[in-house]
Design a binder for these strands. Structure first.
Lengths: 222, 222
DNA sequence: CGAACGCTTGAACATGATCAACTCCGGTGG
DNA sequence: CCACCGGAGTTGATCATGTTCAAGCGTTCG
């Protein structure tokens, strides 16, 4: 579902018209695409790569409120000032539109508008799940949640029920995402490792889920 | 904006057709409108009253993910199982639709679909702000945020810069909303009171903001 | 080689949760 | 009319979880 871009929702000739509005934009890892507080002039589709969307306090605390991958829609509509900062995690390809043009175009392509509505609802749903996490779950649960989510989305099954997962972000970004600190993330991961629930080599992004039943049990306590 | 219902977006004769799909539904305070896990068969507009939308863990921890007031849209679209519980906080009037009918109707009334998209985006934006709160702000900041929000929405100005606010929910619901406990809410409020920032009489829902500058300073730290 | 970075680990600390008592109030029933 | 009860709110003491501060390790990159 993530891989179906909004553009795929409209017929080819119309796509051509829309594409005329958009321009290809390459962003390298670490670059900021949108600063919170700037004028909200553009939106985009993610062609390839990964980005983080984050909100921050005035004194610099950061909470990642979402991650974007290929096919996802980037940007806020109907508001004049961006409230979020979008940063590329990897080298990224975007198809960017002036926001005003895009909003106008939406009205002409009902199928696209519907698809965007569905996606926005899905994002809202994710946000609601994460509010539950951030508000009510402890560090262990948040990390387990995160790993299972990852496994569900990208997990490759290995031998005896093992699931191999590539953690796509750094510890710092995990912390930003889960509302914790780097140290807490690290401690929880090593605890899961010494409990033989997961395995990974020091500093590696590669992670193997040895016992997903235990993870499920952490996520779904009695 | 909150008071403009979706129904107001379409012309009168069409409204009549849509209304034929909907039925008036009175809910008394405390009643549950939708249980998480049930079939997602209905959605509704809020005619009057107030409701809470909450997510819960299997073991009963609850996080309120949103509040609904007159004019707001109630329900999740495009999914077959409700993931959230909706509970009336006060006696409430709804205009309820079978979800399938409503989704079909959306396609016929582009103005309504657009309005719903705008609202969903606005809800998403609120959710993002709250993720920042839940993930990164301490109790004092969350309470200050909440009071200022309330003041902005419903505040009546009094004499010397005072703002009178009626807190529409119990301490328990504030706690559920802010991701804290009842005791923490109480302590933060009495602390603000002894700091002469707000005033209220024991147990009263009426609250006066004496010094909104201090609240702003708490919300927007150096 | 040295510096920088990502990650881990340890120790001390702080914040908010938990447990428990108590007040205030409104309703209910003797 | 008053005694009783239950719910909402407050307050205090203790405790646990996660943060903060600090150090150290292993890699990579200049």
């Amino acid at each position: 579902m993530r891989n179906k871009t909004l553009c795929a929702s409209i017929s080819d000739e119309r796509l051509a018209i829309l594409s005329a509005l958009g321009r290809r934009w390459r962003v390298s890892a670490g670059q900021v695409v949108t600063w919170a507080g700037d004028a909200n002039s553009h939106c985009a589709n993610v062609i390839s790569g990964a980005l983080k969307v984050s909100a921050s306090t005035a004194d610099g605390r950061e909470q990642i409120v979402g991650l974007l991958f290929a096919g996802d829609f980037l940007g806020q509509l109907f508001v004049n000032e961006a409230s979020l900062t979008v940063t590329a995690l990897t080298d990224t390809d975007l198809c960017a539109f002036p926001r005003a043009d895009f909003e106008r175009a939406l009205a002409s392509y009902p199928r696209m508008e519907r698809l965007l509505l569905e996606r926005t609802m899905a994002s809202l749903h994710e946000a609601q799940e994460r509010m539950l996490s951030l508000g009510r779950k402890d560090a262990r649960e948040r990390v387990a949640d995160f790993l299972l989510d990852l496994a569900r989305r990208t997990g490759m099954c290995g031998a005896a029920g093992e699931i191999r997962v590539l953690i796509p972000i750094s510890r710092g970004e995990m912390a930003g995402f889960l509302g914790l600190t780097i140290e807490t993330i690290s401690r929880q991961l090593t605890r899961l490792k010494s409990d033989r629930v997961i395995d990974f080599s020091r500093g590696e992004r590669e992670c193997v889920i040895l016992n997903s039943a235990v993870l499920e049990a952490i996520v779904n306590p009695a």
